[in-house]
């Protein structure tokens, strides 16, 4: 643990992000901590509104944090002046969900990819052109698209441009926010492979955010499951996906429709693990955030917020009852037996 922390290029401690909405103030990210080492991918999964995209933007200092710190290569990003922060940005880059929207429609492919180099004054004109060409090759963009505008590219190519722009400055950390969810299935696999290869060749630390669990599973070394602004379960990918402990993680994994013959039966199981509707962030449940939808919830869950319970290794679960549930000593309450 200490060894990992020492090598961590990105360290987020106790991040809290609050927003004012029409209905009042909400806490979108509620005390999240994470570490990321070189060459490692942390997958972040959760459903819409859980705060995963907000967390990514807070890490990149695109939205202000009310509490906590983000340390990038031992620099506290929150303590920097706007100018210093801008200079730091080439070390942490982001790939966005909407490939077309994230590219300036009036800039050519080379101008787009070269912009970070130009903005940060890296190299001269000739060396920049070389770096851009190199980045294009790394992400699999043919040279003949160099002068095209984003609107003249396919969705997959647009996302390759977004990735090339993010890696051209040789960042330490790459944050990917749903990078494939806007793409066709046959293109998704191409982009996932590009990210997979880049992570290995460039030794990137990657924060990979997605709602598609199978994609996260495929790419991630470690996984964090987020619910209503908090991590409810963290661990290695195989720990979280093959031995999920938190009832929400179990429900989430079971809900993924898989292309096999037991698909329908599995969804029936999922329905018993995730009850009712997502509560509003304006009025989050007391105690355990998940208790209003949890079949195993007891009075204690409403009174006491469960702390992360560290199992072997990195596997941490935020649930009062997960040990008893695993041992078969704690049964679902009757309210899960509806319809």
């Amino acid at each position: 643990m200490s060894a990992a922390a020492a090598r961590a290029v990105l360290e987020v401690s106790d991040a809290v992000v609050e927003f004012d909405t029409d209905g009042g103030r909400i806490t979108a990210v509620d005390g999240v901590s994470l570490q990321l080492s070189t060459g490692e991918t942390l997958g972040l999964v959760g459903e819409s509104g859980c705060g995963k995209s907000t967390l990514a933007r807070a890490i990149l200092q695109l939205v202000p944090m009310q509490q906590g710190s983000v340390r990038l290569e031992d620099t506290d990003l929150g303590s920097l002046s706007p100018r210093e922060l801008r200079r730091m940005r080439h070390r942490i880059q982001m790939v966005f969900q909407d490939p077309r929207g994230s590219l300036d429609p009036r800039m050519s492919v080379t101008a787009l990819i070269g912009e970070p180099l130009r903005v940060h004054g890296i190299g001269d004109r000739a060396s920049r052109a070389r770096e851009v060409a190199e980045a294009m090759e790394l992400v699999g963009l043919p040279a003949l698209v160099a002068d095209r505008l984003p609107s003249e590219l396919s969705g997959g190519q647009q996302q390759r441009v977004g990735i090339a722009r993010a890696i051209v400055t040789d960042p330490a950390v790459l944050v990917c926010d749903e990078p494939v969810s806007a793409l066709d299935v046959s293109i998704q696999a191409q982009i996932i492979n590009v990210l997979d290869e880049l992570r290995d060749t460039l030794n990137l630390a990657m924060l990979f955010i997605a709602h598609d669990l199978s994609v996260v599973r495929h790419l991630s070394d470690r996984v964090a499951v987020m619910y209503l602004g908090q991590f409810v379960e963290t661990g290695t990918a195989s720990e979280v996906f093959t031995e999920p402990r938190h009832p929400y993680t179990q429900g989430l994994i079971t809900s993924v429709p898989r292309a096999d013959t037991e698909s329908a039966a599995r969804l029936q199981t999922a329905r018993r693990l995730v009850l009712g509707e997502l509560p509003s962030l304006l009025d989050p449940p007391s105690g355990c955030r998940y208790r209003t939808r949890c079949p195993y919830a007891t009075d204690r869950c409403a009174d006491v917020e469960p702390p992360p319970d560290l199992l072997d290794g990195h596997h941490a679960v935020r649930c009062h009852h997960h040990r008893a549930i695993t041992a078969g000593e704690h049964q679902p309450s009757s309210k899960s037996m509806r319809g």
Binding site: L60, L62, R86, R87, M88, R89, H90, Q93, M94, F96, Q97, D98, G101, S102, L103, D104, P105, E115, P116, V119, H120, G162, R165
Partner: peptide
């Protein structure tokens, strides 16, 4: 509100 403006902030544009 377009993502490419956010992307350019993330890139480090002034």
């Amino acid at each position: 509100e377009e993502t490419f403006i956010e992307a350019s902030i993330a890139t480090g544009c002034s």
